[in-house]
């Protein structure tokens, strides 16, 4: 175990190996490790972000659902109210129309009555005159009695 040149040879070999390792082995592997670390960290980050997003989306969906339900309820109520209103209106119109028709019919009936009375009056006076004329025939002064009967007829 004598010390000799091997010592220096070993030291040189050692230095060269360390240099090579430092230059060509360590950096690429280390870089890859760090990159992977970053990738994994990013992945975890993204996963947690996605979970949060999902929660938010679910919340939003629930909110929307609730709102739309409320809206539907509102619309339904409005529609009900509106239909009631329409029915009420229709009923009102119908009643007014009926009353109008009834009033018209009534006035027509009155007119008819009046006209019939008028005709009747005319006829009655004629009939009465004709009857009286036939019964009395001779003793009647047509002009004098007609005036009388007309006066009578007018009182009807």
């Amino acid at each position: 175990m004598n010390l000799n040149l091997t010592l220096i040879g070993q030291a040189i070999a050692f230095a060269v190996f360390v240099w090579f390792c430092m230059k060509y082995v360590w950096p690429p592997v280390m870089q890859a490790l760090q990159e992977r670390q970053k990738k994994i960290a990013d992945g975890l980050d993204a996963a947690s972000r996605a979970t949060r997003d999902l929660e938010l989306a679910q919340e939003k969906a629930e909110e929307t659902l609730r709102e739309s339900k409320e809206q539907a309820q509102q619309i339904l109520e409005q529609a009900n109210k509106r239909s009631n209103q329409i029915v009420e209106e229709a009923r009102e119109t119908a009643r007014a129309e009926g009353e109008r028709i009834i009033a018209g019919a009534r006035s027509e009936i009155d007119q008819e009555i009046n006209r019939a009375k008028e005709e009747l009056r005319a006829q009655v006076s004629l009939l009465a005159v004709a009857g009286a004329e036939r019964i009395l025939e001779s003793s009647i002064d047509e002009a004098k009695h007609r005036e009388l009967v007309d006066k009578l007829a007018a009182e009807l």
Partner: peptide, 27 residues
């Protein structure tokens, strides 16, 4: 002092190169 151990040098350098080759091939 002016002597060199051939076997020591041979094996140590050979093994050192084996190590570096192995790691370099991965790197």
């Amino acid at each position: 002092f002016w002597a060199i151990h051939v076997d020591t040098m041979l094996w140590s350098i050979g093994l050192g190169m084996l190590f570096l080759w192995l790691f370099r091939s991965v790197a």
